[in-house]
C-alpha cells in the first residue's frame, strides 16, 4: 500500500494545511507519514477527525526554508523536514513525498537522497497551468518542464524531460499519447539556436513520443501541446508571468470598480468571468507538480497551498505509486514504451 511522506513544515499554512489534509485522506484509506513537530502535529490532529492506523509521525523541528549561510546553502540540510521526508522515501519507509516547502530545498533533497533514473543528468521541476483546450476530453491544464531546477540544459536533459513529462501527463490526464511541444522562438525546425535545433531533431526521431514540434509563446495557453519542454530559466519566467496574470486581472477589476458608477456598471457583466478566471488560475488549490528524473515520486506544491491542494496531492501521489509511475519512467528513459 502507498505510504506518503508529507513535509508538514513547508508552506505558508504550515503545519495546519498539511495535517488537515493528511487527516482527511487517512479516513479515505491513504497512509501518511507526517514529518514535522510532533506536538504541533498532534494539536492539529486533535482538532479534526482522523484514522490513527494510517498516520504516523516523524519528529523534526527544522523547516526546509530556514536560512543557511555560505556553501552550506547549496546542500540539503539533513535535519530539515523536507530532507527527513526525502530520506524516508529513499529508505523505503515511504513511497512518495509531498511538500509545499521552497522548491529549491526540495530539488536539493531529491537530488541528494532519491535514486536518479539511469541516463538522467538533471532533475526537472514541473508545474501546471490552465490553458484552453482544442478538443473535448483534453486536460484543461498543461504540464511545463522545467521551471527552475536546471537553469541551463543539454539536449539529453530536454529529451529526458519530454519522455518523463509524457509519462506523468498520461497518468494525470488519462491521455494515451500526450502532445509534446518544445518552447521556442519560432515554429521552424531551425529556430532557437543549436540546443533547441538539436533537441527538436532528437524529439522528432523518437516514435514513442507524440512530438508536435516547436511551440511559440503565443501558443502556450492554447491546446496544441499537453507537455511543454524548456530550460529552467525560460520555464521559470513563463510560470511566474502566468501566475501574475491572476494579480493583474484582480488589479484591473479593482481599479475599474473604483472609477465611478459607469465603470462599475461596465465591469458587472464581466464579474462572473473574472471570478472564474481567478478560480482556475488560483494555484493554492492545485495538486502540485512532480520533480522528474528520480525513481521515486515527489510532488511540489505551491507555498500558499490550502488543505484541499494537499489532499489532492496526496491522492495523486498515491495514484502514482499504485500505477507504478516510477517503473514507467524507468522504462521511458530506457527508450521502451511503458
Amino acid at each position: 500500500m502507498a505510504r506518503i511522506a508529507v513535509d508538514t513544515l513547508g508552506g505558508a499554512a504550515a503545519p495546519s494545511a498539511a495535517v488537515e489534509a493528511a487527516a482527511r485522506v487517512s479516513l479515505e484509506g491513504i497512509e501518511v507519514v507526517l514529518v514535522g513537530h510532533v506536538d504541533r502535529i498532534q494539536d492539529e490532529l486533535d482538532a479534526t477527525s482522523y484514522d490513527p492506523r494510517r498516520i504516523s509521525v516523524r519528529h523534526c523541528a527544522t523547516a526546509g526554508d530556514e536560512p543557511v549561510d555560505g556553501w552550506r546553502a547549496l546542500l540539503p540540510r539533513r535535519d530539515s523536514s523536507v530532507a527527513v521526508a526525502a530520506r524516508l522515501v529513499a529508505e523505503g519507509e515511504a513511497s512518495a513525498l509531498v511538500t509545499a516547502g521552497p522548491p529549491a530545498a526540495t530539488v536539493l533533497a531529491v537530488a541528494r537522497f532519491f535514486e536518479r533514473l539511469p541516463g538522467v543528468g538533471r532533475l526537472g521541476l514541473a508545474s501546471v497551468y490552465p490553458r484552453e483546450i482544442d478538443d473535448a476530453g483534453q486536460d484543461p491544464f498543461a504540464l511545463i518542464v522545467d521551471v527552475g531546477a536546471a537553469l541551463r540544459c543539454e539536449v539529453a536533459d530536454l529529451v529526458a524531460f519530454a519522455r518523463l513529462g509524457s509519462v506523468w501527463s498520461r497518468l494525470v490526464s488519462d491521455s494515451a499519447a500526450p502532445r509534446i511541444g518544445l518552447l521556442n522562438s519560432g515554429a521552424d525546425e531551425d529556430a532557437g539556436g543549436d540546443l533547441l535545433v538539436a533537441t527538436h531533431r532528437r524529439l522528432r526521431a523518437l516514435p514513442e513520443l507524440n512530438f508536435v514540434g516547436n511551440l511559440e509563446g503565443s501558443e502556450l495557453t492554447g491546446g496544441r501541446a499537453d507537455v511543454v519542454v524548456c530550460e529552467g530559466l525560460v520555464g521559470n519566467v513563463v510560470i511566474k508571468l502566468l501566475e501574475s496574470i491572476e494579480d493583474v486581472v484582480a488589479a484591473v477589476a479593482q481599479h475599474g470598480g473604483s472609477e465611478g458608477w459607469r465603470a462599475r456598471l461596465g465591469i458587472r457583466p464581466l464579474a462572473q468571468q473574472i471570478a472564474r478566471l481567478r478560480e482556475i488560475s488560483e494555484r493554492p488549490g492545485y495538486a502540485g507538480a512532480p520533480i522528474l528524473g528520480a525513481r521515486q515520486i515527489c510532488l511540489q506544491l505551491h507555498p500558499r497551498s490550502r488543505p484541499l491542494a494537499f489532499r489532492n496531492a496526496l491522492k495523486l501521489a498515491a495514484k502514482a505509486v499504485r500505477d507504478d509511475v516510477g517503473g514507467q519512467m524507468l522504462a521511458a528513459v530506457a527508450g521502451r514504451t511503458p
Binding site: 479516513l27 479515505e28 501546471v128 486536460d139 484543461p140 491544464f141 504540464l143 494525470v172 490526464s173 488519462d174 472564474r276 478560480e279 482556475i280 488560483e282 488549490g285 492545485y286 495538486a287 507538480a289 490550502r306 484541499l308 491542494a309 489532499r311 489532492n312 491522492k315 495523486l316 495514484k319
Partner: peptide, 20 residues
C-alpha cells in the same frame, strides 16, 4: 466523504491536475 467546504471549481478539484 467527498464533500468539501469550498466548491470544486474554486479549488480546481474537478480538474485532472487536481486529482480528486
Amino acid at each position: 466523504p467527498g464533500e468539501d467546504g469550498a466548491s470544486p471549481a474554486a479549488a480546481g478539484d474537478a480538474e485532472p491536475h487536481s486529482e480528486d
